Computed example of a mutant assay.
Amino acid sequence: MGEQFKNITLEHIDEEHICCAIADKKHQCGVTNKKEWMRERLTEGHVFRKLDVRGKVFIEYAPLEKAWIPILGENYLYIYCLWVSGAFKGKGYGKALLEYCIEDARRSGKSGICILTSKKKKPYLSDKKFIETYGFKVVDTVEAYELLALSFDGTKPTFTEQVRHGKINSKRLTIYYGQQCPFIPHCVEEVRNFCEAHQIDVNLIEIDSLEKAKAVPCIFNNWAVFKDGKFESVMLLNEGHLKKWFACDKE
């Protein structure tokens, strides 16, 4: 590995590639939104560490108390995303990024690190088997989703209580979304346009504060979908997904 890693700072955030949407023009609004979101988070201890190349090789984490997810715990780090893609796979970059996070946590006197995964691999979530090789253990479970933690002192983070119910008092298609992921604004636009064109009642709820993020009534890692009052998934939706979804309903 001859390339160097770097941490994004306020001084260089405007010039840096900081996400997985590198050249896709339809996601440039999302890139701008993410940078705006990150500017405030960096002062709270948020870390975005990337390989110094134009590629998808990065880890993003933050103090759990400041992490925009419905997980509670004290003195932990929460890993939002660990992503190595394409030609960069198989070169030890994921290992280097995760080990940096672990050393950062130990050096900072943290109680541990946690991350959202699933029993079976799901889109947008890190691979459970890879994370477990570093000593992470399942500390909480809600249906197919699992909270893994590497505890240094025996303490354990947990999902919030409202997450466990996975229901809301509405039959409307309901989507909770944040601005951290650069793909989200375009997905929101596609969902809104599709629902308007097909007269589908949709409720799009932007999570624009830490308090709202901690209070989301389901598993959430920037995006969460409810259908007929029941939590469905954290998978981003677009027009193609919706066509299949609602076509199935009519069969």
Rank of each mutant, 00 (worst) to 15 (best):
E3P: 00
I8Y: 03
T9Y: 07
H12N: 15
D14A: 11
H17P: 07
C20V: 04
A21G: 05
D24A: 04
T32V: 11
K34L: 08
K35F: 01
L42A: 01
D52I: 11
R54G: 06
G55C: 06
V57C: 10
I59M: 07
E60A: 10
Y61E: 02
A62V: 07
A62W: 00
L64K: 00
P70S: 05
P70L: 05
I71P: 00
E74Y: 00
Y76K: 02
C81P: 07
K89C: 12
K91C: 11
G92K: 10
G94A: 12
G94L: 06
G94C: 09
K95Q: 13
L97K: 11
Y100S: 14
I102Y: 08
D104F: 13
D104K: 15
R107W: 14
G109V: 09
I115T: 06
S118D: 06
K119L: 13
K119E: 13
K121L: 11
K122S: 08
P123E: 07
L125H: 06
S126V: 12
K128D: 07
F130S: 08
F136P: 00
E146V: 12
S151N: 00
S151P: 00
T155G: 01
K167P: 02
I168Q: 06
S170D: 11
T174N: 05
I175K: 05
Y176S: 04
Y176A: 04
Y176F: 14
Y177F: 14
Y177G: 03
Q179E: 09
Q179F: 07
F183E: 13
C187P: 08
V191I: 15
V191M: 09
R192D: 15
A197Y: 04
H198R: 10
H198V: 05
Q199K: 13
Q199C: 07
Q199D: 12
D201W: 01
L204E: 02
L204M: 08
D208M: 05
K212N: 07
V216G: 09
C218G: 15
N221A: 14
N221W: 10
A224S: 15
A224G: 15
A224H: 09
D228R: 12
D228K: 14
V234R: 07
V234K: 07
L236W: 05
L237D: 08
H241V: 14
L242R: 10
K250L: 15
E251W: 15
